[in-house]
């Protein structure tokens, strides 16, 4: 037993003693796990109606100060991103490596800009590129309509910095990834299994903000201040 494990044993034994019983050997019965039943029923009803979920997601995202729009086709989505980026005079982009983004071919449309596709094999370069980028582009793994949240999970192709360092974030949200409650995403995460757990799972609900100076709302304090959630109606 190493030092850390010994410290752990002492620490835990003390807790068991204070609780006045030996430590349970089997998992304790946990009858109140997760959200109350009425909430699960409520969100299940919303989940049955995809259009309602999209509308709810857009409303919440906008209330938090983000921009949201839904697109029935990839062409419409592509045009919107190109127009927005041009209007913003964005020069440098960094994006996740993702089939949907490959298919969008934004690099061809915005060929005069500097594009970086995330590559976990070149960490230092990625860090510098993400820090210098004007816009980060990602595809969300999930979205939650009840809270207006997008979820992104880190991997070799999906750096955490992409959704964090540039002043502007564009997140493409496939409609099939939208869930009605946080709980539905949580159970998906539980089911991933220890071997394949991503190191970073990030729930993002709008632009970076602070009210620390005299309660005055400031946008874009450390993370992106401009955030677009663009829904692609893939179903």
């Amino acid at each position: 037993m190493n030092e850390q494990e010994q410290a752990q044993r002492q620490f835990i034994v003390n807790i068991s003693q204070r609780l006045g019983r030996p430590m349970p050997k089997t998992p304790p019965e946990h009858p109140f796990r997760g959200a109350p039943p009425f909430w699960k029923e409520h969100t299940r009803a919303i989940a049955a109606d995809p259009a309602r979920m999209i509308a709810q997601f857009i409303e919440c995202w906008q209330q938090a100060g983000g921009e949201a729009k839904s697109f029935p086709s990839l062409d419409g989505l592509r045009t919107f991103i190109v127009d927005t980026a041009t209007e913003m005079k964005a020069r440098a982009f960094i994006r996740h490596r993702h089939p949907l983004l490959d298919e969008l071919k934004l690099e061809e449309e915005l060929s005069e800009s500097d594009w970086t596709v995330w590559d976990g094999q070149r960490p230092e370069e990625m860090k510098n590129k993400a820090n210098a980028a004007d816009i980060g582009v990602i595809v969300a793994d999930y979205a939650v309509s009840a809270t207006g949240t997008i979820v992104t999970m880190s991997s070799a192709d999906k750096g955490r910095s992409v959704s964090l360092l540039p002043p502007m974030l564009i997140a493409i949200v496939p409609a099939s990834c939208i869930r009605s409650s946080l709980g539905e995403v949580m159970s998906q995460i539980s089911a991933i299994g220890m071997e394949r757990m991503p190191a970073g799972i990030h729930f993002i609900s709008g632009p970076s903000r602070s009210a620390d100076i005299e309660n005055d709302l400031t946008i874009g304090v450390h993370g992106p201040g401009i955030v677009y959630a663009l829904i692609f109606e893939d179903r």
Binding site: T147, G159, A199, I201, F203, S205
Partner: peptide, 23 residues
Amino acid sequence: TGQRLTVYMSGITGPRRPDDGDG
């Protein structure tokens, strides 16, 4: 604060994976 959710909620499980580029 009365928010539905904070802007960021991050679940961090261990250090970066061998192929990850950050973390």
